[in-house]
Design a protein around this nucleic acid. Structure first.
Length: 273
DNA sequence: AGCACCACCTGTGGGC
DNA sequence: TGCCCACAGGTGGTGC
C-alpha cells in the first residue's frame, strides 16, 4: 500500500505527537507481526523506553528511542493510528497496540497481515537485521550525481524493475513509479543503457517532483491508505496514468495496462517511448 | 545480472 | 443473485 510519500506523511504527523513519550506495556493481538526479537522480548524490552525522534529510510519508519530503534514497515495494508485517549476504534484487523504512559497510544492495523515491526538495540543491529538490502533514500540520501552514478552500474536493467528495486533506491512503489516514468516520457520496459541524452536527469527530476507532490497532497489513497488520523490521501485525483486503463491521456491516446516487473503497469504508448 | 514466478494474506470487483 | 478468478501502494525466496 504505502510508498515513500504515505510513510513520510505519517512520519511528519507522528513525530511531534510521540516526542518524549514513554512506552507502556504493548498488547500483541497477532504476535507474528513482530519480526524481531521474539514477541515476548519485544514486549518487555520496549516497555519503559522513550521516543526521541522519528526518521525514515524508503518505506521503513524508524522510531528512535533513548535506547534502540523501533522500525515499522506497513507493506500493503498496514496503518498506524494515533489515539490521544488511547482507545482503538472498532477494528477487526487490529494487530497490536502500543500504549504510552500518559494514556495515549499508537495502534497498528493491517488487513493482509504483511506489515512488520522490529526492535533493534543500536544502529549496527538496525543495519544488519533490517536495512541490509535497502538502498539510499531517494529523497534524503541521494543527489543527482549520485543517482546518475548508481544508474551507470545497472545498464541492463529495465526502468520499471529498477525503480521498484529497493536495493537500488529506497522509496518508489508501483504507483509513483508509473507516474514518474510517464512524466519522464520513458517506456517502463526500456533499459538503462538505452536512455538518451538528458533522460536520466529528467528521470531524477521526475522522481523528486512526483514524490514531493505526493507528500504535499497527503499521499495517495487508491484503496486502503489512511494517515495517522484515519483520513484519506488526496493525490489519487492527480494521477496521470496509474489506474486509468483505457482512459485518455492528455495527448488523446488511451492509456494501456501491461505487466512489467511482475506488476500491473500503466503507461501512455504515445508519450512514453 | 536480471527476470519470472510463487508465497505470504484478505478483500473486492468484473465476467459469466 | 452468486460463484470464480484475477488482482491489489510490498517483499523475500527460488530457479532459470
Amino acid at each position: 500500500m504505502p510508498e515513500l510519500p504515505e510513510v513520510e506523511v505519517i512520519r511528519r504527523e507522528l513525530e511531534p505527537l510521540l516526542e518524549a513519550k514513554v512506552f507502556a506495556r504493548p498488547e500483541l493481538y497477532m504476535p507474528s507481526t513482530i519480526q524481531y526479537p521474539d514477541p515476548k522480548e519485544f514486549v518487555s524490552s520496549l516497555t519503559g523506553r522513550t521516543v526521541k525522534k522519528i526518521g525514515r529510510r524508503g518505506k521503513y519508519m524508524l522510531i528512535y528511542l533513548d535506547r534502540g530503534i523501533l522500525t515499522v514497515h506497513l507493506r500493503m495494508t498496514g496503518n498506524l493510528f494515533y489515539a490521544g485517549d488511547g482507545r482503538a476504534r472498532e477494528d477487526r484487523f487490529l494487530r497490536l497496540s502500543l500504549p504510552f504512559t500518559d494514556g495515549s497510544a499508537l495502534h497498528f492495523s493491517d488487513m493482509r497481515r504483511f506489515g512488520r515491526l522490529w526492535l533493534t538495540e543500536n544502529d549496527f543491529e538496525l543495519q544488519e537485521l533490517v536495512l541490509k538490502r535497502v538502498g539510499p533514500d531517494i529523497l534524503n540520501d541521494l543527489c543527482r550525481e549520485e543517482f546518475l552514478e548508481l544508474l551507470g552500474k545497472r545498464e541492463r536493467s529495465r526502468l520499471k524493475a529498477l525503480l521498484l528495486d529497493q536495493g537500488f533506491i529506497a522509496g518508489m512503489g508501483n504507483i509513483y513509479t508509473d507516474e514518474c516514468l510517464f512524466r519522464s516520457g520513458i517506456d517502463p520496459n526500456r533499459q538503462v543503457k538505452d536512455l538518451k541524452e538528458g533522460e536520466a536527469e529528467k528521470l531524477y527530476r521526475s522522481i523528486r517532483a512526483v514524490l514531493a507532490e505526493g507528500i504535499e497532497h497527503g499521499g495517495t489513497t487508491f484503496r486502503d491508505y489512511r494517515n495517522s488520523r484515519g483520513a484519506l490521501g488526496d493525490f489519487q485525483s492527480r494521477l496521470a496514468v496509474y489506474g486509468r486503463k483505457d482512459e485518455k491521456c492528455r495527448c488523446g491516446t488511451p492509456i494501456e495496462k501491461i505487466r512489467a516487473a511482475g506488476r500491473g503497469t500503466y503507461f501512455c504508448p504515445r508519450c512514453q517511448k
